[in-house]
Design a protein around this nucleic acid. Structure first.
Length: 705
DNA sequence: GAGCACTGC
């Protein structure tokens, strides 16, 4: 530890921190900032008046860094040095240095907005600009004024981003700490390749044939490309003349690989053998592979983005930022000097790449974050002018407000309701928090807890690995349509998820049962943990009774899940769709009408006439590139009516506090135009009849054929 | 009738 660069800067760091409430530390990889900053401040007495909290964007990082610091200080983990991540709090009264995920710190600040426990807060890896980090940056700016006398804030960032953060904090001082990286030679392509798959293949083989030993890390955008490139590389390598170069092994690396395959990249290769690791972004920050000397960077990344004007998510391949390009290059210089092959010209890097990655806050639906900030009830803060490093668009904030209004989390004037206050306590998207609150009122809380927990883990339930050996029947199993797994009784995906968990419960949470049904054991265990946590929070939040087992046991509601589906309809009031009359497509109800379809993987069933239900709620809209509703649940028209009424009354002007959201907005998006107003205003009975008539006509035509 | 970057409370 003594040879870590940061230790030489101890005096300078201490002096700056003493003189300033906020300090930005720019430290490259290997500077030791994550492990040493806290120890330096601890040595200098900053733990006498409180705890030093160090946030990390990722759980594994919080745990591993805490473990290392405990070791360096020669203390038991959980005593003077501890960590707190979701489901796991390894701290005690003794703890002076506490590593935690930024999400956990946000939760803590919900019950103690001044974070009085802490004398120092270090936001580590702030350049990654996670949604949570950005919210914390805003909160710190405010907190530092409240606690000027007894709180120090340190923010660590990468080179290209430090100045911006410093400006945000009124030109606070910036300290540079060099990293301990070996030099990495950057080699650009002359042209942008027509196919970066072919181009990386060629570059990889060139390296293999010409360069001395050292592993090669190749950044690709997704599983598909990775699998293709792995195959091609293996073929090419085998076709090379034996003895003409090193042996080689090719390994894929991405998030949906089973853990046992992921760890293969950490096993050192046999001697005289070069490894090629073909990876997604996961190797950029989350996983560090030793022995990498060459990096091939395609210059792209797959990124999920939210479009507030349509309410739709899309997964796009986009150009990386300079910060990301440098981070990728840095992966080549961890053990000795390396080389980075950029499959794009230097001009593209200079002129086209953004300096920093578009922060997550500008790419996400903000309903949850806005509710969170409103629930803090900060006296001097107006949510829509909240001071973000990079503010989200006013359109995105308005979208969040409308959603929150429709689910009763905020009143017509934009102030948080007591219901919203309770919802904010739950670590869930607002739609699901609202569903829980409603379910608790109507006696189906137990089911709703399960649905919410299952949806929290949804993507990690199914093994995503597509092996060549997977037969068609297996392929089907993955989609929950195997005979053994329930089908949601036709009501849709929420109900199916509920039934799956109930079945697991009936099988005493047997691991073998998960495996037999192709469900990921880790995912299902996660669901169990989430459900337990939600149950505990509901116990605390729901004043009075908590009705976990009651009327849902009666047979009537068990068969059609009516109370649960009704609760879902209340929770997903901002995510409703009505079926088109002529066909099985849907139109979203709300501020904008989108034409969407039920995702083909859905468990939602058509009736005897091949028709989908007239109304559904959906968990999300995804453009892939065709617009689909993912995770849908059938609801009844009479439950939808109150939402439509509420939509008519909606006034975004009042919601956003009676004025334009930001200066210069000139009120552009502030009023719903006539066109945007909900169109479904007929009396319910008329509409039902009309739909029935249309269905009859449709069937009559079909019959003639 | 089709597609899964990565985190996290």
């Amino acid at each position: 530890m003594a040879n870590l660069p940061i230790v030489q800067f101890e005096e300078q760091i201490i002096k700056t921190v003493e003189d300033n409430p906020i300090t930005v530390i720019i430290g490259e990889t290997g500077s030791g900032k994550s492990t040493q900053l806290s120890q330096i401040l601890h040595r200098r007495g900053y733990t006498k008046s409180g705890v030093i909290g160090v946030t990390q964007p990722r759980r594994v990082a919080a745990v591993s860094v805490a473990r290392r610091v405990a070791q360096e200080l020669g203390v038991q983990l959980g005593d003077e040095v501890g960590y707190a991540i979701r489901f796991e709090d390894r701290t005690s009264d003794l703890t002076r240095i506490k590593y935690l995920t930024d999400g956990v710190l946000l939760r803590e600040s919900l019950s103690n907005p001044e974070l009085n426990q802490y004398s120092v807060i270090i936001l580590d890896e702030a350049h990654e600009r996670s949604l949570n980090t950005d919210i914390l940056l805003g909160l710190m700016k405010r907190l530092i004024k409240l606690r000027a006398s007894n709180l120090k804030v340190l923010i660590t960032s990468a080179t290209l981003d430090g100045e911006k953060v410093s400006q945000f904090f009124s030109e606070c001082p910036v300290l540079n700490v060099p990293g301990k990286l070996y030099p990495v030679e950057i080699l650009y392509s002359r042209e942008r390749p027509t196919s970066y798959l072919e181009s990386s293949l060629k570059t990889a083989i060139d390296i293999h044939v010409r360069e001395p030993e050292g592993d090669v890390l190749i950044f690709m955008t997704g599983q598909d490309d990775i699998e293709k490139l792995v195959r091609k590389l293996e073929e090419k390598v085998q076709s090379l003349e034996e003895g003409s170069c090193l042996d080689a092994i090719v390994l894929p690396l991405h998030g949906s690989l089973p853990p046992e395959q992921q760890v293969r990249v950490f096993c050192p290769p046999p001697s005289n053998c070069r490894r090629f690791v073909v990876s997604t972004n996961i190797a950029e920050t989350s996983l560090t592979i030793d022995g990498v000397v060459y990096v091939i960077d395609c210059g792209y990344v797959k990124q999920r983005q939210y479009n507030p004007s349509t309410g739709m998510y899309s997964l796009d391949v986009v150009q990386i930022s300079k910060v990301q390009a440098n981070q990728r290059a840095g992966r080549a210089g961890r053990t000795r000097p390396g080389k980075c092959y950029r499959l794009y010209p230097s001009r593209v890097y200079q002129e086209e790449f953004l300096d920093v990655t578009v922060p997550e806050i500008q790419r996400s639906s903000l309903a949850g974050s806005v509710l969170y900030l409103k629930s803090l009830d900060l006296p001097d803060i107006d949510i829509l002018n909240f001071d973000f490093v990079d503010p989200p668009s006013s359109e995105s904030l308005e979208d969040a407000l409308k959603q929150l209004y429709l689910i009763d989390a905020i009143d017509a004037d934009g102030s948080i309701s007591s219901l919203g206050q309770s919802m904010a306590e739950l670590p869930l998207e607002p739609s699901l928090s609202r569903t829980l609150m409603e379910a608790n009122e109507n006696g189906c809380l137990s089911q709703a807890l399960t649905v919410a927990a299952m949806l929290s883990a949804e993507t990690s339930l199914l093994p995503a690995q597509r092996s060549v050996h997977v037969s068609r029947s297996n392929e089907k199993k993955r989609k929950h349509t195997s005979l053994e797994l329930p089908d949601g009784s036709g009501w849709g995906d929420h109900i199916q998820l509920l039934q799956i968990f109930e079945q697991w419960d009936q099988n005493d949470y047997d691991i073998g049962w998960c495996k037999d049904n192709d469900l990921r054991v880790r995912g299902m265990k996660f669901v169990k943990d989430v459900r337990k946590q939600l149950c505990q929070i509901m116990q605390k939040v729901a004043k009075g009774s908590l009705d976990v087992r009651s009327s849902e046991r009666d047979k009537e509601s068990q068969r059609d899940y009516k109370t649960l589906r009704k609760a879902l309809c209340v929770g997903y009031a901002s995510m409703l769709a009505e079926k088109m009359i002529q066909h099985n497509g849907y139109r979203t109800i709300g501020f904008k009408h989108q034409l969407v379809q039920v995702h083909p993987s859905s468990a939602l069933k058509t009736d005897d006439y091949g028709m989908y239900p007239n109304y559904v709620v959906y968990h999300e809209l995804i453009a892939t590139p065709r617009p689909y509703m993912r995770n849908v649940c059938a609801v009844e028209m009479k439950w939808v009516i109150p939402v439509l009424k509420k939509l008519e009354k909606l006034n975004i002007n009042k919601l956003s506090g009676g004025r334009s959201i930001r200066e210069g907005n000139d009120g552009k998006h502030l009023n719903l135009s006539e066109k945007e107003k909900p169109s479904v205003t007929e009396a319910p009975d008329d509409r039902e009849n009309r739909i029935q008539a249309a269905r009859d006509r449709f069937l009559a035509r079909k019959g003639k054929k």
